[in-house]
Amino acid sequence: MSLYRDTGVVLRVQKLGEADRIITLITRNHGKVRAVAKGVRRTTSRLGARVEPFAHVDVQFYTGRTLDVITQVQTIDAFGAGIVGDYQRYTSACAVLETADRMSAEEGEPVLRLYLLVGGALRALADGTRDPSLVLDAFLLRALAFAGWSPALSECARCGDPGPHRAFSIQAGGSVCPRCKPPGSASPTHEVLTLMAALADGTWAVAERATDAARREASGLVAALLQWHLERQLRSLPLVERRRP
């Protein structure tokens, strides 16, 4: 039996048999790991509360024949506590987890950068000091960059002609010049592209000055870019509560 230890964020939990769960984690050093947590659904389990979604944990695993098994868990950050008490934060955080799960398709492939992005986004959502919708869009833009799908926000995505340009094409990969512009391109305002650039590089002072209209439009473009690249629809993204009613 071989043991290993890593830190990770719980992305997903699935029921297994009577009382076990399969826990999917994005880890610092071992990429995405799917492992069994035994007996955690019994309300007497000490392990259970520690391997819930959003938890940032220090885990010991042993290598099993099909799935690894979780033997010990210590909580590093209980992000869930600051997230589940607010429905907007909860739905945004779910979209963070699902995106991370989808972008780390191969188990074991290192995804350190994505792991750090997930931790940062959940920390910001749990703290609650920033608009959850902005936190989510910043995460999604950076996750797109991690996957090599950064949208062009100033230069033309096709010919590289320095912008700014009026047209924006999801299929072309961002801003497009009048010559390269495919039919059906969007035409976001300059403020929307400025907001997206600020979110991508973490210039919060600029991002937080954006109007509600610009935030809404940027969210729409980011969601469309993500869907385009991931091909299959994210389940959680349409359920994200964007503005507090």
């Binding site: 009382a19 659904r41 309300t43 389990s45 000490r46 392990l47 259970g48 509360a49």
Partner: peptide, 15 residues
Amino acid sequence: GLPMGGDLEFADELT
């Protein structure tokens, strides 16, 4: 009194 992470159906009647 109900620990987090469990299913309600596994709680004993007393708890």
